[in-house]
Structures are given as structure tokens and as C-alpha cells.
Design a binder for these strands. Structure first.
Lengths: 216, 216
DNA sequence: CTGGATCCCTCACGATACTG
DNA sequence: CAGTATCGTGAGGGATCCAG
């Protein structure tokens, strides 16, 4: 009771009571990419305890940020999906992500990439670079970091993004920790290839386009 | 170190590790209105324990969101002020506040207005209504809710806002809980005056302008 | 297998008192 | 005024267990 609530009549206070609890915004981030099942969320948030995930989902449902929905047959499964109200957080979360990305130091040894966070990051930086983008379209990339594969296509200024591999990408980018440095610009594309922190299959020149398209 | 991070290489995760802790964003909200001393912050966040305030200030300083500065003489005092990096959260916090305001139900009995939250709210809604505003300028308002007085001036499309009274305002608006309902549009200006939840001194017609200018 | 609920332990938070 | 010190509580972390 005291834990809940800041005791102020204020929109920001109210917002923080809804989405300010630990893990809440990350759950929403993952759901922004589409409806998900309990186990999918658990997978995307490796360190979240199941009881906390459970509690957050109930709270966010209560606040009408998301809905619990039982999938029609034949696949009787429970999915969680954002409401329109919840989806309005999209821009805010992207802006916050962009803000926080500037403070990312070198990752802790056991920090990991997740499919959803990476998809969100690429989506965010693509949008942020809208003005300066040089369109050498259409082009398709496949990004691989340890345990993760993501497919990207750019065509007519539209970004397509999905988990998993794709057939015949123009460029395959394979990296680990160095990937973040590439996106933030700490590491130039050519230097990244030279020192081996990024490996590519395809025209190495495309990596420069990639870095420009998705620079944070 | 904060309560263990989220273990993800992600801008949003990083942002939440910095400003996602309890009270952090409210501290930043108050500092967005200008540098403040420890005691001022404490005043504006009535329920925050002093040790938590202390801890947050240290963490946020560490993250270069704010600076601790010792005021030059004669007033030897410590103030906290946002860095440029911290000030970039302005738009994000306003957007979040606007989002959360739509979920504000009826306030709890011991929820209160604070000077800073109210100033922030008015500033936010002023900006959000930029497109639809009808400029009947210049005009000055004095808003009074229990324990709080705020002065507003609108001139040349610029909003001036400060704590405390002002000489000779065009309209004095005195309200308590009903004030939020007026801003959200739940309560019309005329109904608010009629049922006594808002009292005005000056031309009652100006209350309609006010409500249009600052509608959430 | 999915979709959680339950247990225990720890630590961050909340309340209060106190100090330079 | 600007914090530090102390201590109790409950949310979160982690593992396990259980129903459909």
C-alpha cells in the first residue's frame, strides 16, 4: 500500500505507478513487437522470476496496458498483447532507449543480447536516422550475435524486421560484444572488420551502409 | 550499485538502470524546473525517506544526470542541478506524464498536489495544446490549491510559470481536488464554478480560456 | 510441454532518530 | 540545512513444485 503510490496528484506519478515497477517497461518493450505467451516473455527476460512476471502481467492488465487473451482453437494458448493505450508507450520507450544507449559502457561479462531488445534497438535507430539516411535500397541484412539471428529488409523506406534467418541476404553480419560499439559509432565499420570483432559475408561495403542506417 | 541490472545489452535496460529506480524520475521532474537544494527536494517529494533521496542523488550524479554544486558565497549552500544529458529527459517525462494523466482516477484521500508537479503538469499541457490554443493574450492567472500558489502568464505564445503569488492577476483560480477534473475535461468550467469545486476571482469567462489552454 | 503458484532468503525501501 | 545511522518490512531474486 505505501509501496504503491507516490501520494501525488500528478500524471507522471501515476504513470510510474503503472509502468515504473521493476521489469514492467521491459515487458512492454517485448510486447510492442507483437503478442507473446508467458513462456516467450520469460525467454526474452532471462533474469525475471516467474512470480514477478506473473505479478506484473496482472498489474498491467489491471491498468489496461495489456490484455490477457486466450487464443482460439485449435491452438489453445494464452497470449498477452498490448492495448491501444499500452501501445502508446512505443515512442516513449524508444526515446528512453535512445537516451540510455548513450550511457552504455562496456557490457558486463554476463550481459546478453535478446532478440526483442535487439529488434527494438534496430527499429529505434532506423527511425531516429530517418532524416540522414541514404537510401541504397532495397537491401537485406541478417544479423547474428551469439544465440540470436535477426533478419532486416529495407525497401521503399520501410523497415522489415523479424526474428530468425532469411534466404539469401545481401549481407550477413556476425558479431558479439563489438556490435554495440559499431552501432554507437565507437568502432568504424572498417576497423570492426579488421580487428575481427565483426565478420561479414557479402559485400563489405554494405556494412558501412548498415552502420549509417542503424547508427544510434 | 543499483539493485542488480537487467543483464541485457539494451539502451532501454540501461536507461532503466539509471532512472528506473523508485523516486528517480520524480527527482528529475522537480529538477527540470531549476536547481534545488536537498531540503527543497524533500519538500517537493513529501513521502521520500531522506536516505533514499540521498542514495538517488548519488546514483544520478554518478550517471551524470545531475551535478552537485556548491553555491558561491555568500550563500554557501549545496544545490543539485541537471546536466545537459539529464535535461534531455524533459520531453520523455512530459510524454509519460501526459500518458499517465489519462489513467488518473479519483485521488486517494491523502494524495496531494505539490508545487513542482503542478507546474510541470501545466507546462506539459500548455505545450501539448500548442496547436489548438486560442491566443487571447496577454493574460495572467494565479492558481491556488491547498497549500500551493502558482503564477502563470501567457504572452506572445510564451508561458511564464513560477511558484508563489503575483500582483494583480487577471484571474485567481482556487480549487482543491476538482482541479484535476477541470484539466482533464471531466468537469466543465461552468459546472466547476456552479458546484463550488472551483472558485474564481475575476472574469469567470477567463476560466474557459484557462481550461482550453491547459487541458490535458 | 505451457502457465503459472509456492517457498525461502536477501536486500532495497520506508520510518524514525540523530548529527556536523 | 544537509544529510548519516539504525532497524523493521515487504518486494524482488531464485529454486522448486504443480495443474492442465
Amino acid at each position: 500500500m505505501a509501496r504503491r503510490g507516490y501520494g501525488q496528484i500528478c500524471g507522471l506519478s501515476r504513470a510510474l505507478e503503472i509502468v515504473g515497477e521493476r521489469w514492467a517497461m521491459l515487458i512492454i518493450r517485448d510486447l510492442l513487437l507483437g503478442p507473446k505467451r508467458f513462456t516467450d516473455l520469460r525467454q526474452g527476460l532471462p533474469r525475471i522470476p516467474t512470480n514477478v512476471l506473473s505479478a506484473r502481467l496482472k498489474e498491467l492488465e489491471q491498468a489496461e496496458v495489456l490484455q490477457r487473451r486466450i487464443l482460439p482453437r485449435p491452438a489453445t494458448a494464452v497470449v498477452y498483447e498490448l492495448t491501444d493505450y499500452g501501445r502508446e508507450l512505443d515512442g516513449i520507450l524508444m526515446a528512453l532507449g535512445r537516451w540510455g544507449a548513450r550511457s552504455m559502457g562496456t557490457p558486463e561479462p554476463d550481459d546478453i543480447y535478446t532478440v526483442d531488445s535487439l529488434m527494438m534497438a534496430l527499429r529505434t535507430s532506423y527511425q531516429a536516422n530517418e532524416a540522414t539516411r541514404v537510401p541504397a535500397e532495397p537491401v537485406s541484412y541478417e544479423v547474428r550475435v551469439p544465440g540470436i539471428v535477426i533478419s532486416l529488409t529495407v525497401q521503399d523506406g520501410e523497415l522489415g524486421i523479424s526474428g530468425g534467418p532469411q534466404p539469401d541476404p545481401d549481407l550477413v553480419i556476425e558479431a558479439s560484444d563489438g556490435f554495440a560499439a559499431l552501432l554507437t559509432g565507437t568502432l568504424t565499420p572498417s576497423a570492426a572488420i579488421e580487428n575481427g570483432s565483426v565478420r561479414v559475408t557479402g559485400d563489405p561495403e554494405l556494412l558501412t551502409d548498415f552502420a549509417n542506417t542503424f547508427r544510434i
